[in-house]
């Protein structure tokens, strides 16, 4: 059952992401990317990361992708549908990607790499002292410093985005 759902989500992710990188209409690509994120959130639930799954929908689909759609409409990017979509070096790109794929396949999946035996979490999905509580406590104790650094990073990105996108008015 779990495996079946995993294959379903995986097929969705791969199909939708292939469409994302090949569509000529930017808005369609963005909407398909949202679909990809939904399927990924499904995979996260299967992997016992329910908090992360919701964060995926809330932040990626509900936040970042709305920002993308908003900017696409601001930039009037739909006109680029009629233009050439791919670089002239696309052939080499495909070769490089295939090499990369082969490399990952050989290094990560094949080659008899030893993986740790399955341990699993101490809690099960959906129980009340579960993923959220565990994640919260580890995030605010062991990983408190990286957490603070990440918040500084977000602040810097926010200021940077405002400075870059602000229209300077010459008087």
């Amino acid at each position: 059952m779990e495996l079946l759902f995993f294959y379903l989500f995986a097929a969705g992710i791969i199909g939708a992401s292939l469409l994302v990188v090949t569509r000529s209409n930017v808005i369609h690509a963005a909407l398909l990317l949202v679909l990809t994120f939904f399927f990924m959130s499904g995979v996260f639930v299967l992997a016992g990361a329910e908090f992360l799954a919701v964060v995926q929908v809330l932040l990626y689909a509900g936040g970042i992708m709305v920002l993308y759609l908003f900017s696409i409409m601001l930039m009037n990017a739909e006109v680029s549908v009629r233009l050439r979509q791919f670089h002239r070096q696309s052939f080499f790109t495909i070769v490089v990607s295939l090499i990369l794929a082969a490399e990952i396949w050989w290094k990560v999946l094949g080659g008899g790499a030893a993986y740790p035996a399955f341990k699993g979490f101490s809690w099960t999905l959906g129980t009340t002292p579960g993923n959220v509580e565990a994640l919260g406590s580890i995030l605010y104790t062991k990983y408190l410093f990286p957490f603070e650094v990440a918040s500084i990073l977000l602040l810097a990105a926010m200021i940077g985005a405002i400075v870059l996108a602000k229209r300077t008015i010459d008087r």
Partner: peptide
Amino acid sequence: QVNVGLFLVLAVSSL
């Protein structure tokens, strides 16, 4: 009844 109930409501309604 899910563990992340309220958060899920926020996420889904943001769609």
